[in-house]
Computed example of a mutant assay.
Amino acid sequence: MSVTLIAAVVALVLGHLAQPLAASVRHYGWYSDWLRWIDSRLPEDSFWRGRWGLALALVPPLLAVTLFQLALDEPLIGLGGLLFGIIVLFYAWGPRDLDQDVEALASARDLASRREAAARFWPEGGTPALDGGSLVEAVFRNALRRWFGVLFWFLLLGPVGALGYRLVALAAEGEASRQLPGETLGGARTLLALLDWPVAQLMTLALALVGNFDTVLGAWRESGGARFSVDNRFLGAVARASVKCELAEEAADYVGESGVASTTAVALATSEAPELRDAMSLVWRSLLVWLAILALFVIAGFVA
C-alpha cells in the first residue's frame, strides 16, 4: 500500500479520534510571531509589502520541511518519511474539528449561541450569516479549508504541500492575517483562492458522485464552474443545490402513496438544522470517495 495513502488514513483517524491531542498541538502562534518579526524589520518600500510578499515568510519553513522530507524518504525503507508525513498532515489538518463545530451550531438553542457557533465558520473578523443556505456554504467552505485543501496538496506534494496550504490559509484568513500589510494580505488571499480552485473542482466531482449528478452539474454550470474564476463561488452554489436535493429526497421517502406527508416527514422538516446534518453527511461521503479513488490509484500503481 502506498505510503501516501497510509499517512493520509492514519492522520485522518488520529484527527477524528484523538481530538484533545489535536487541540493541544495545532497551535500557530509561532507563525504569527514570524510574520510580525518580518513586518517590523523590512522597510515600507520592500518586496514584503507588495502583492506577493508572503513568499518571504513561506520560503524558510517550507524549505526546512522539504529538506526533512527528502532526507527521510529512503532511510528505514521509507518509515521515517511515513512518520514525518503523518505528523505534518496531522498538524496541518483542521485546526478545529469540523464535526464538533457543526454539531455545536446545529444544537444551538438561542440566537446568541447560534451566532457564536456560526462565527467559527467565518474568517477572522467576518460577520456570520445565520440563514440555512449561508450555513450550508460555510460548512463546505470549511471542509475545503480544514480537510480537502490540506489533503489535496499533501497528496500532490507531500508534507510540504500540506503545511504550505495551511500557512497560506492562516495568512489569508486566520489570526496571522492581522500581521500582514494590506497589499500583502490581498496577495495571500489571491494565492489561497488559486490553491483552492482545483480542490473545489474535485469536491464538486465527488458531490456529483455521492449525490444527484444532474443537480450538481446544473448548479456548477450556472454558477460559472466551467470557467476559471478565483472566487470559487461555484462550490457554494453546488453545496446549496445538493443539500436542497437531499432534503427533498428524504422528505419524499416519507410521503405515503396517497401523497399525504407522514408524521415522520413532518418531524424531518421541523428537526433542528436538517440542512447542516445533510451538509455534513455529504462532506463525509465526498471524503470517502476521495480516499477510495486514491486507493484505486495505489492499486493501479499511479501513486507511490
Rank of each mutant, 00 (worst) to 15 (best):
A162I: 03
Q179G: 10
G132I: 00
D39R: 12
A106N: 05
W220L: 07
L294E: 09
L157H: 04
P20T: 00
T270F: 10
A226V: 09
R51E: 13
Q201T: 12
E250C: 04
G29D: 15
G164N: 11
I77F: 12
R285T: 02
A55M: 13
A295E: 06
G164F: 06
F121G: 03
A176N: 06
D101V: 02
R96N: 11
L191N: 08
D99L: 09
F302Y: 14
G187T: 13
A219Y: 00
F47C: 12
A200I: 09
A176H: 07
S134N: 11
Y165S: 03
A206G: 10
L291F: 15
A261V: 13
T190W: 12
L192E: 10
L144I: 04
A118W: 00
E173W: 12
V59H: 07
S229Q: 10
L202C: 11
W290L: 04
S113V: 08
V210E: 04
A169V: 03
W290E: 04
D131T: 00
V88Q: 03
G236Y: 01
D33H: 14
L72A: 07
L105G: 05
F154R: 07
W147Q: 10
V136W: 00
A22M: 06
S134K: 08
Y254G: 08
R145T: 04
I87F: 13
L207N: 01
A23W: 03
A208E: 01
D97Q: 11
T204V: 13
L89W: 02
I293T: 09
D39W: 08
P128F: 03
L79N: 09
S134R: 09
V10E: 12
L155N: 07
L209F: 14
L235P: 05
F121R: 03
A267E: 15
L282K: 04
L111C: 03
C245G: 10
A55W: 13
L144C: 09
L111H: 05
L205P: 04
A248C: 06
N232S: 08
D97Y: 07
A143P: 04
G15C: 02
E257D: 15
V13N: 05
I86H: 06
G224W: 02
V150L: 08
L155R: 02
R178C: 04
P20L: 00
V298I: 12
E44M: 09
W197Q: 11
L70D: 10
A237S: 14
S271T: 15
R120L: 13
F234M: 11
E74I: 13
A252L: 14
A92E: 03
L14Y: 08
D231K: 15
W48N: 05
L268M: 14
V13G: 08
D214A: 12
I77C: 11
